Amino acid sequence: MNIQKFHEAFEQMRLKNLGKSLERRELGIIASHYGIYFNSTMWASGLNRFFIVTKLGPKFIYRFKSKETSINEVANFMNDCREYARNDQRKILHAKAILRRYGINVE
């Protein structure tokens, strides 16, 4: 995804929804209205750094920060997403955990 376009769309979304408390699902729906898409890789890579996160019972509630998001923060986030997606060791450990669940032990 283009860093500049993501930044512009995210800032528009942030300004329009400032002060609202939202769940992940709601954030994903709102993001799609602005032409961006939040996927599980983004959440695992630290998308929550752009929000104020509160845990309410079993759910997490997200609010946009009042401070403007810089282009450097978005660039760092995109680099973290690429690094997370290309992490072969993480994929291997995940596959081993799935196999262990079914009683197959691999060294």
Rank of each mutant, 00 (worst) to 15 (best):
Q4S: 11
F6E: 02
F6V: 02
F6G: 04
E8C: 15
A9C: 05
A9Y: 07
A9D: 02
E11G: 10
E11I: 15
E11P: 03
E11F: 10
Q12F: 10
Q12P: 01
Q12I: 04
R14D: 00
R14L: 02
K16N: 02
K16S: 10
G19K: 01
G19M: 01
K20T: 02
K20V: 01
K20W: 05
K20H: 01
K20F: 03
S21V: 05
E23C: 13
R24Y: 06
R25S: 09
R25M: 07
G28V: 12
G28F: 06
G28N: 04
G28K: 14
I29D: 02
S32M: 13
H33G: 08
Y34K: 07
Y34I: 03
G35Y: 11
S40D: 00
W43M: 13
A44F: 15
A44Q: 05
S45F: 03
G46E: 00
G46V: 03
L47A: 05
N48Y: 12
R49G: 05
F50H: 10
F51T: 07
L56V: 14
G57I: 08
K59M: 13
K59S: 14
I61Q: 05
I61C: 12
F64W: 07
F64R: 01
K65G: 11
S66N: 08
S66F: 08
K67N: 04
E68T: 14
E68G: 13
T69A: 08
I71M: 13
I71T: 13
N72I: 11
N72D: 11
N72W: 10
N72H: 11
E73Y: 12
V74F: 04
A75L: 13
N76R: 15
F77I: 00
F77S: 03
M78G: 06
N79E: 14
N79L: 15
D80A: 15
D80V: 10
C81R: 04
R82D: 03
E83A: 15
A85H: 07
A85I: 14
R86I: 03
N87F: 10
N87T: 11
D88G: 12
Q89W: 11
Q89Y: 09
Q89V: 14
K91C: 10
K91F: 11
I92D: 01
L93D: 05
H94K: 15
H94I: 08
A95N: 07
I98V: 00
L99Q: 09
L99G: 14
L99A: 05
R100K: 14
R101L: 05
R101N: 06
G103E: 00
G103R: 02
G103P: 12
V106T: 05
V106P: 01
E107M: 13
